[in-house]
Design a binder for these strands. Structure first.
Length: 449
RNA sequence: GUGGCUAUAGUUUAGUGGUAGAACAGCGGGUUGUGGUCCCGUUGGUGAGGGUUCGAUUCCCUCUAGCCACCCCA
């Protein structure tokens, strides 16, 4: 008879006295508990890309600094103070990408995608980096996904893109969102408008808030975006860009609206909407979490037409339009609105074992069940049946298979229905068949919604 | 980048210028073959560094991080 092992409390090793490395500011772990949200959004987005004929592209995360300086604009906040820039010994200044559109335009040019049937429709998903001060929904590494349509000037694609966005939010259960749409014209008509706007504001310079005084020289379009109460009445009678659009831009904008109306898509024409990246032309739009205008609310996504970007980066003139959406911000909304989302498939069965011989047999049975594609959980490292059933319970499995000394001798196995506690002894050879029968039976009883 | 608030165990938190307490979670046990409820035990903590003090988790400073507003944006 083997000696009984003495009961001994498990020794838990002390953590060494070392400084634990901290997360960098604005960087987060995406923990297992969050993954249901991520999988849900990613899968829905990929289904949309597939359904609407987009192909996935994954540009690199590190790019030459000039790409973003030229595309987003030297004067923008993103380029001026938010990029993670490094000097690489061999390649000069490199940057962790702050957004993806510029990379995609670069890829379009360098892979000669203008030789493909136009338009080229591309989908992306991945991390972006901006060195901002973090708060909720604002991190230094954050995920965006987006849709880009290159090589098509027709306003119908602008409308289709906005329709995709609208449908996407409906699909994931955020139907309260507000689509804000505007046109900022082409460089020509925008130039005239900005001139007029600056003249208007310059006359009232003394009454403006400090930020607006800066905007006047740095980024006049942003004047229209000021939230200071004192600037509101100045804004109210400011010139509106719609009145300054050239014929072509005006027609384009009207067509976009017309197509959107034809799909019964709800959107709001917002004459004050501007975007922070220089490359936008004509149609611009944003996704707001709610209709509400006052108070801060972080946008869930934004996009627009960028007809000049490809040419600016050295390609042939190529009209294009795109949108990008913020994954973390969408998740925050899903949580806030308590939208039910699908969860990971839980295991159906737990395989428990008692004793050395049973452990080996169970260890092998587990592989067999995996081959049969039965989702089965285990904790082979545990010896007591009590703790194994405890694990089974925590996993909320329907059935537990129990294999002990006696069953090994008899060539049987126990199937325990967890909820009722009812157990039956079956022939070990029939384990797979019996399990499949029970699981199928179960599926019939509780049809998948 | 500017301004404000905050930091106690894995999580939610109590408390004190004199040894930090709880709940939940975790682990172990309540006849080494039976989970959920119950009972018992147990692991684990004052974000980091300085200063004042006989003594600091508590008071002061710096840093770090988080949150809120602005800027800006996804």
């Amino acid at each position: 008879m083997p000696k009984k092992a003495e009961k001994q409390p498990k020794k838990i090793p002390k953590a060494p006295v070392l400084k634990i490395p901290q997360l960098l500011r604005g960087f987060k772990d995406i923990l297992p508990a969050e993954q249901n949200f991520w999988r849900f959004i990613c899968q829905t987005a990929e289904n949309f890309s597939l359904g609407y004929g987009f192909s996935r592209i994954d540009p690199p995360i590190l790019e030459e600094a000039g790409l973003f300086v030229r595309s987003i604009g030297k004067q923008t906040d993103i380029v001026e103070k938010e990029m993670f820039t490094f000097n690489d010994v061999a390649q000069g200044m490199v940057v962790l990408r702050p957004e993806a559109t510029a990379s995609i335009a670069r890829a379009y040019i360098s892979h000669g995608m203008f030789n493909l049937p136009q338009p080229v429709k591309l989908f992306y998903w991945g991390p972006m980096f901006r060195r901002e001060r973090p708060q909720s929904g604002r991190q230094r590494q954050f995920y965006q996904f987006g849709f880009e349509i290159l090589g098509e000037a027709n306003p119908v694609v602008d409308a289709q893109l906005i329709a995709i966005v609208s449908n996407f939010f409906n699909q994931i259960g955020l139907d309260q969102i507000s689509l804000q749409v505007n046109s900022i014209g082409c460089p020509d008509c925008r130039k005239n408008f900005i001139e007029e706007l600056v003249n208007y504001y310059r006359a009232k310079r003394k009454m403006l808030c400090e930020d607006c005084k800066n905007r006047l020289t740095k980024n006049p379009l942003r004047l229209l975006d000021c939230k200071q109460p004192s600037c509101q009445f100045i804004k109210a009678s400011a010139p509106q860009i719609v009145d300054w659009l050239c014929e072509n831009c005006k027609t384009h904008f009207m067509k976009v609206a017309e197509y959107l109306d034809s799909l019964n898509i709800f959107y709001k024409l917002n004459p004050y909407l501007v975007r922070g990246l220089d490359y936008y032309t004509r149609t611009v739009f944003e996704v707001w979490p709610t209709e509400k205008e006052e108070g801060s609310q972080s946008v869930l996504g934004g996009g627009g037409r960028y007809d000049g970007l490809v040419e600016l980066l050295g390609g042939r003139p190529t009209p294009a339009v795109g949108v990008s959406l913020g994954v973390e911000r969408i998740i925050l909304q899903l949580k806030q609105k308590e939208v039910a989302i699908p969860s990971k498939k839980a295991p159906d069965v737990f395989l428990a074992q008692i004793g050395d011989a049973a452990k080996i047999k169970a260890f092998n049975l587990y592989e067999r069940l995996r081959q049969e594609n039965i989702l089965v959980a285990e904790s082979f490292a545990k010896d007591s049946l009590k703790s194994q059933l405890d694990s089974a319970n925590k996993l909320k499995v329907k059935y537990a298979l129990i294999l002990g000394q006696k069953e090994v001798m008899d060539g049987t196995i126990l199937i325990r229905e967890m909820e009722s506690g009812v157990q039956e002894i079956i022939d070990f050879k029939k384990t797979v068949a019996e399990l499949k029968k029970k699981l199928n039976h179960n599926n019939h009883q509780t049809p998948v919604v």
